[in-house]
């Protein structure tokens, strides 16, 4: 049954029309806090994409081969978050040990990621929507790219706003949220890009 949903459509939808940040508001905290600068946005975005692409299919395997056979589906919240935390920890240690430049550009964002709702969110969506392994992988990758696009675009817009006159009470998060609203509308404009057959 699940294979009826085409992996390709899910991939595109998760980048544009169903952007995990702009339609499900997941990963808002770090989105608002980190989007001040283009460079850090890119770094965090890349780290999120990497972790999403790996943990979503990883959690799929854990769910299908460990939780379902033992009827432990109700423990998925705990198990998923442990898998994510462990993976993030491992990546951080590996990077620190083997690649100093990569650690400096990517690794420093990793601790922020375990508590990023988008990561756990993608795993939970993947279960509820009954994806196959391949679809989960593409969904994780697409959601990551979508998140990256949104935060980079946001930091670009915020750089331009630095000299703008904004009501003091609206400065910071207020104006960021309004921009995010417009971005959400713009991303919705991509709907209908792939025809339903």
């Amino acid at each position: 049954m699940p294979s009826q949903v085409t992996a390709f459509a899910v991939f595109f939808a998760s980048i544009f029309t169903g952007n995990i940040l702009l339609t499900n508001y997941l990963g808002m905290c770090s989105f608002l806090a980190v989007s001040k600068e283009m460079k850090t946005s890119l770094g965090l975005g890349a780290a999120v994409t990497f972790v999403l692409t790996v943990t979503t299919p990883l959690n799929w395997l854990v769910y299908q081969y460990l939780l379902i056979p033992f009827n432990l589906e109700y423990l998925r919240f705990i198990v998923f978050i442990i898998v994510i935390a462990a993976f993030v920890q491992l990546t951080e240690m590996t990077l620190e040990r083997y690649s100093e430049p990569l650690y400096q550009s990517l690794g420093i964002f990793l601790p922020l990621i375990t508590v990023n709702c988008a990561i756990l969110g993608a795993s939970l969506f993947m279960v509820i929507r009954e994806y196959t392994f391949m679809t989960s992988l593409l969904f994780g990758l697409g959601s990551g790219i979508g998140w990256l696009l949104a935060i980079v675009a946001m930091s670009g817009i915020r750089a331009k706003l630095r000299t703008a006159k904004i009501p003091p009470a609206l400065e910071g998060p207020g104006i960021s949220l309004i921009i995010a609203g417009f971005m959400a509308m713009a991303f919705m404009g991509f709907s209908g890009m792939i025809a339903v057959s």
Binding site: L22, T23, N24, Y25, P167, A169, L170, P173, G174, I175, L177, I178, A180, G181, F182, A184, M185, M188
Partner: peptide, 15 residues
């Protein structure tokens, strides 16, 4: 009721 509405209303509430 669509996602952009959530952003706008939250921003206005904060304001």
């Amino acid at each position: 009721v669509m996602p952009p509405g959530g952003f706008f209303i939250l921003a206005i509430a904060i304001w």
